[in-house]
Nucleic acid binder design. Sequence first.
RNA 1: UGUUUAUAGCGGAUGAUUGCUCCGAGUCAGUUCGGGGAGGAAAGUCCGAACGUCCUUCUUUGAAAAAAGAAAAAAAGAUAGUGGGUAAUCCCCACCAGUUUGGCGGAAACGCCAAGCGAGGGAAAGCGGCACAGAGACUAUACUAGUUCCGAGCAAUUGGAGCAAAAGGUGAAAAGAGUAUGGAAGUUCUGAUUCUAGAAACAGAGCUACCAUAUACCCAUUAUUGUGAAAUGAUGUGGUGCCAAGCCCUGUCUGGCGCAAGAGCAGCCUUGAAGUUGAGAGAUUUCUUGGAAAAGUUCGCUCGCUAAUGAUUUUGGCAGUAAUGUCAAAACUAGAUAAAUGAUCAUCGUGUUAUCUGUCAAUUGAUAAAUAACAUACAGAAUUCGGCUUAUAGCUAUAAAUCAAAA
RNA 2: GGCCCCGUAGUUCAAUGGAUAGAACGAGAACCUUCUAAGUUUUAGAUCUAGGUCCGAUUCCUAGCGGGGUCA
Length: 131
Amino acid sequence: MYNKENHLTKVRDFNLILKHGYWVNNQFLSLKVLELAKNEAYFPSTGDVDKFKKQLKLAVNIGLKVSKKAVVRNRAKRQVVEILRELMSRGAIQAGYYLFFVAKPNIKEKSFAEISEEVKVLLKRAKVLSE
RNA sequence: UGUUUAUAGCGGAUGAUUGCUCCGAGUCAGUUCGGGGAGGAAAGUCCGAACGUCCUUCUUUGAAAAAAGAAAAAAAGAUAGUGGGUAAUCCCCACCAGUUUGGCGGAAACGCCAAGCGAGGGAAAGCGGCACAGAGACUAUACUAGUUCCGAGCAAUUGGAGCAAAAGGUGAAAAGAGUAUGGAAGUUCUGAUUCUAGAAACAGAGCUACCAUAUACCCAUUAUUGUGAAAUGAUGUGGUGCCAAGCCCUGUCUGGCGCAAGAGCAGCCUUGAAGUUGAGAGAUUUCUUGGAAAAGUUCGCUCGCUAAUGAUUUUGGCAGUAAUGUCAAAACUAGAUAAAUGAUCAUCGUGUUAUCUGUCAAUUGAUAAAUAACAUACAGAAUUCGGCUUAUAGCUAUAAAUCAAAA
RNA sequence: GGCCCCGUAGUUCAAUGGAUAGAACGAGAACCUUCUAAGUUUUAGAUCUAGGUCCGAUUCCUAGCGGGGUCA
């Protein structure tokens, strides 16, 4: 897993991205992006605004529709998270974004290499990837 | 040797690169070092407990607030052969009644042996139900055939009131209920005889209410054996359909809610009827406004929480048929929170199939090595334990059944 | 994670333990029509699954499977 600082955990933040973010879709993954610099109007009243702008928070959602077995869901999630962690450790993802990945049911048949390609395509389309 | 079933156990290993989390130690914030890190079902949430909290009643202490301890009745729910185990249970162990299958004996009822099942109190407290069929399904009953009495009719025949459940037939079940021997009112059939010609008595055969004797079941009383459920006997002017996983009765058990329980910390917003307090206005009880407290709402963090000393784990001894108990020694064993315990790759192991080679038997089978392909299960802790249930590739052990091949 | 509720034709619902499990809408086929619609006739159910109680189970009991709700 990546660091705890980059977890998207609070209900407030989820509401923020779900209301004001936009979708990027592909075959077996979807991505919702919120560019923080363009949405200052909706920030919480307390806290430092500049510091808030430089955050990078991620979340991955594998719903019950993907599979009823916890083992299958956990494995898919670990694979996605591992790809993101590798990209972040190289500094390939720009700061200042909230990212929210949602899996579709056919992800369980895909290999690690296929998922890796899919994630990169999505990030490129969202213009978050800095390479 | 194989196959199937049941029970018990195991249920991948090593390395490389790169990560997450908890604990400890340093450093003084960049991180570094050391150690720990999923299961037999972690699952389903079907039961039971620990633990927490709330409520009712009572007792004690106390000025009070409160604290500590204990628990009844009603209702509702659960449970049900006996004995034992346990913290407790709808769990576990042993046994009993009953029952299924197979074998043996017997004319049959039934008895014996082996294996399996075994939610099994009360139907002589009451209510309710028993479709269809059938005369009748619990206040027994009369369709056919039979028979007695009173009638109608010339007669054939027919109306009413009884008797009779032994025959026919129905049904899952027919008035507790078989079997053997003997008798038997009655009834059916056959035979020949008699006469008033459709009846009588006679003979034989069949069925049978009922009676006697013997035997098996149930019930009541009673004797012996067993801790007990029960078993084996004796006695009797004894004989009551089935269903309580229908209501119900009887005995026993259970107060409710569940770690999202519960405790604490800090903040945002709203309300402000009545009461309290400050200020102001009016002027003696009205209005305006602020605060505290309270109520509601929303969003977080910490504790509970797991490094633990226990219904703990492992090994061994002893007691017990067993479940289990007890003694001794050693060990301390995950703790996350949109939720860690991983990701990628390589090599090996295990199983199946195929190919090739060697050996033994000589169609073909067994075995050993090599190569290739495929497979390598079910499944992821969330307060903690004890059970139950369900899922599970492959391997090992034990037991039983079974067929095939060889000797 | 805890606690509740519900499963009957394709869909929405019935059925007191007792025929062959019904109704409406829908679907298929045929008739009617020049064709379509409407109309008429007709066809098709593993009562979620598996055990048990009972002479007999959609109904009663037990276990599983699936679906839904709710609690800070």
